[in-house]
């Protein structure tokens, strides 16, 4: 077959910073983040899209980085947990609401929550049901679920107030 390649040269953005990377086409975004860019905040729990630990934001949408192949990153904007400022309402809410126990699901949860927060019209009253649905793809075995939902709720309220 013509035109195929085993190697790709990628130009993409991670946490607002332009990146250029030459890598094998079969590598996943999760591997690239952790191994090539040394951004180990994004975690692996299964590598087959069954747990949500590897959630990042790609062009504004939350995705499982273990399922995204390198060439699919061309021209994209990626946000990982490392791209979140320390004073982000979600970070402060997670810390303050005791939404973190072992912390392993936390980066993925915060990314899923950020994606929800960014897409949600802050003028609406946020229903707990919506938050749970938005985070239904992120498992937590420590089951900080209700505190995570409270944290996201608190961040939504803060976003509403700041408008």
């Amino acid at each position: 077959m013509r035109d195929g390649s085993a190697i790709v040269v990628l130009n993409f953005q991670v946490n607002g910073r332009k990146r250029r990377l030459k890598t094998y086409v079969w590598r996943t975004l999760l591997e690239i983040l952790r191994e090539d860019l040394h951004l180990t905040g994004t975690k692996h729990g299964c590598e087959t899209g069954e747990c949500g630990a590897c959630t990042v934001i790609l062009n504004g949408k939350n995705v499982y980085s273990c399922l995204v192949l390198a060439p699919q990153l061309a021209g994209t904007k990626i946000t990982t947990i490392e791209g979140m400022p320390a004073k982000h309402p979600l970070i402060e809410a997670f810390v303050g609401s005791a939404a973190i126990q072992c912390g392993y699901c936390t980066p993925g949860m915060i990314m899923a929550a950020k994606s929800y927060l960014d897409e949600t019209d802050a003028g609406k009253q946020t229903k707990a049901r919506e938050i749970k649905h938005a985070l239904s793809g992120n498992l937590c075995r420590c089951a900080s679920y209700s505190k995570i939902a409270s944290a996201v709720q608190a961040a939504c309220r803060r976003k509403q107030k700041n408008r």
Binding site: G49, G52, T55, L58, K61, N62, V63, Y64, L67, V68, A112, H133, A134, S136, G137
Partner: peptide, 8 residues
């Protein structure tokens, strides 16, 4: 599946 999978 889940929201993240539905996004892709």
């Amino acid at each position: 599946a889940t929201p993240a999978i539905r996004n892709q």
